[in-house]
Design a protein around this nucleic acid. Structure first.
Lengths: 228, 228
DNA sequence: TTGCCGCTCAACGTATACACTTATGGCATC
DNA sequence: GATGCCATAAGTGTATACGTTGAGCGGCAA
């Protein structure tokens, strides 16, 4: 039972131990159970996961590469300190990269990709009406990733996904409240309009605004729910 | 003597072994001595560097995180395959990110940062006249990194530097020929002009063109020097 | 009392041994 | 002759032991 893992008590011992430890630590950091700045003792973690130091080290190195952990040689690691300022910086960066993506995508997407995107966007209407936040989150990811791919620049798409994932690790709670869903869809609509007109610059500006709206919404949410 | 390292026969045994192996492998990949797609056997590398598999593994993981190596679970690693298309994708991505940076920097930089940038730019005049390519390369890095910092977005700056470094690992030869130096400086001049006028959009467009010029120049160079 | 030196110990970095998975070659069968 | 299965081997994943370094602390001298 007590093996240090959270969600794998169903006997899921498959996969690389180092990967499972990495995922577990990612979750714990994302959930805030491992506070920013907390020391990460390798032996201690190894004991907690019932493993040796080796896979723990591998996991820590990967997390460090992803920016969730800071490692100093011979001094051990700590959970990366994520100030609100830094989170906003990350949001701005994502917003700018998404803006770049949608501009390139507008100029480069094939008719097939365009119709696929339109189709996807239409799919979101019933989701918004149902208010299913998880479903919308899933759709939203697809929508944005479809745009990344339509840039026809695989490297840029990878970077966009990587940064987006990195940011998601710090989304400690569901960002999108009910009313945000319809606003989000309206903003998508405006972006789609610009794409349809072939105006990449316009699409870019609208995407940037869309992302910054989401960030502001999140920031207000955090402000409202922060521990007194 | 034969310890597998290239440039450290002066007894420089300092630093972490894993880091030294990582640097050595980075160099070898960058120089093309380790061809793309080449298998990376851990034991074999360990023997070559006179070390054990442990630091080699650490090095490989770090390289994988940086994108120079691809690792498949229980199947070992290979040097990442870098097609010309992918390199161009990376250049475009850098160009777009730099364009974002200079736009934000134009709107946000402090007077001190502005004068620092002007000062740096002026410094490049004698370097161009001297034709010292290495000195220009060093200046150029400083110039661009100064702009990154002036965005006042540390995360974005980190991303920009990371991608730029990643790209540098594949610059197998000196990119900038003599004539390119003065053209590069002229382009910097145009960017500075836009910054001075507070026109971030203009600075952005010029930066994008500047970066793509450099990429085109490189691509022509590669084309001309590629093995028959 | 303060500052420096050296000690001690905890934690990381590296080496080595073992376990497990995957790939490959040969053999049997269809 | 082709295909599928099994045995063997090569190589990665993990465990553990040892070396090494940096930090904390106490003692001694100025």
């Amino acid at each position: 039972m007590e093996n240090g893992f959270e969600t794998e008590d169903d006997g899921d011992d498959r996969g690389l131990l180092s990967d499972r430890i990495r995922n577990a630590l990612t979750d714990e950091i994302a959930a805030g159970r491992l506070a920013a700045g907390a020391a990460l003792d390798e032996q201690q973690l190894a004991d907690r996961f019932g493993a040796s130091r080796t896979p723990v080290r591998e996991a820590l190195r990967q997390l460090a590469a992803g920016g969730l952990v800071e490692l100093r040689a011979r001094r051990g690691g700590v959970v990366a300190r994520m100030t609100p300022e830094r989170i906003m910086e990350m949001f701005e960066t994502v917003a700018e990269i998404e803006a770049v993506c949608v501009r390139l995508a507008t100029y480069r997407m094939t008719p097939l990709e365009r119709s696929r995107l339109i189709e996807l966007h239409e799919l979101s209407r019933p989701i918004v009406e149902s208010g299913d936040v998880n479903a919308y989150d899933s759709f939203n990811r697809q929508f944005h990733e479809t745009i990344y791919c339509a840039t026809h620049n695989g490297f840029l798409a990878e970077q966009a996904i990587a940064i987006r994932n990195r940011l998601n690790a710090f989304r400690r709670t569901q960002l999108r409240q009910g009313e945000r869903l319809s606003r989000s869809r309206d903003e998508h609509e405006a972006i789609m309009q610009a794409i349809a007109e072939g105006d990449g610059e316009m699409a870019s500006r609208r995407m940037r605004a869309h992302m910054l709206n989401a960030a502001t919404s999140l920031s207000r949410f955090i402000e409202a729910n922060k521990p007194a």
